[in-house]
């Protein structure tokens, strides 16, 4: 029997690969409670990785998409709407499968991009790995959902704000940066918090969806399922992963609450909307 300390040393970083701990996962009757606690915790590294990077990158794309969809120019608004529909209208799970199959079809040597003065070769192999390929899918997916939220917020910006900006002689990018964008953020923030939680939860799909878990390095749910299959006992590993995700959700809510405070810092103390996270059950 391994002691808890040994389990910790062997598995806390195991999700990074076989080189970062015991190469073989615990099997059969050797599995201890500590193994489950630490190995599943180690899987969380990937959940946080996927969620943080996808959200950070998606934020910018979403802003651009929302503005494009709101634009009166059909050459901007149509493609943006199409993109949003594509990713919001189909299941993320299928998007993963489809994307993986596309990624492995990309030529092994990479794609030659012929610029006028030089030829560069874009490496494509890395896209078949979950760490990058699945991240791209999650990034585009959350961009689409977030864009729809931002788009709704754009439409709800009070007319008076815009008129005031005009009266100050602001125009173009200055108006966007100083008036439109901050107002949009304030309006969208509660829904955006919700989207962040949904996305964090959606990261658990990655390793069930075609993207192979190299050297059995997977996310928290991948290990939880591994244990449930090995021990025939779902009553230990799934509650552990559930507890971890409750904590992770609370952390997300906390971080977004802090950002919300900052967004509304210009308002007087009394009218400043208290950030009470009202969970929405829709994505």
């Amino acid at each position: 029997m391994r002691s808890c300390q040994e389990s910790f040393d062997a598995y806390i970083l195991r999700s990074l690969g076989g080189d970062y701990g015991e190469r073989l996962l615990p099997r059969g009757v050797d599995i201890t409670l500590c193994d489950q606690v630490f190995l599943i915790a180690s899987g969380l590294i990937w959940n946080v990785y996927f969620a943080a990077l996808a959200l950070a990158a998606g934020f910018f794309v979403a802003t651009a998409l929302a503005v494009a969809k709101f634009s009166e120019n059909p050459f901007l608004s149509k493609p943006a709407s199409g993109f949003i529909f594509l990713f919001r209208g189909s299941p993320l799970f299928i998007q993963f499968f489809f994307a993986y199959e596309v990624f492995i079809l990309l030529p092994r040597a990479g794609i030659e991009i012929n610029l006028i003065f030089t030829t560069i070769t874009a490496e494509t192999r890395w896209l078949a790995r979950a760490t990058s390929g699945a991240l791209v899918v999650l990034w585009l997916n959350t961009s689409a959902y977030t864009a729809e939220i931002f788009y709704g917020a754009l439409r709800a910006i009070p007319k008076g704000d815009l008129e005031a900006a005009d009266a100050y002689g602001m125009s173009g990018f200055t108006k966007f940066r100083r008036i439109i964008w901050p107002t949009m953020m304030r309006l969208a923030w509660p829904s955006y918090t919700n989207e962040a939680i949904f996305l964090t939860h959606a990261t658990t799909l990655v390793f069930f969806s075609g993207f192979p878990a190299w050297q059995q390095s997977g996310d928290a749910l991948y290990y939880a399922r591994y244990f449930a299959d090995q021990t025939f006992n779902p009553f230990v590993s799934y509650p552990i992963v559930a507890a971890y995700f409750i904590v992770l959700t609370l952390v997300v809510i906390g971080l977004f609450g802090m950002a919300n405070k900052r967004l509304n810092r210009h308002l007087p103390q009394t009218v400043r909307p208290k950030f009470r996270f009202r969970p929405q059950y829709i994505r």
Partner: peptide, 17 residues
Amino acid sequence: MVRGVPDIVFFLFIPIA
């Protein structure tokens, strides 16, 4: 419960349980 825990955890857990 569905707010804090990914739905897929329930899908895996409930049938076996």
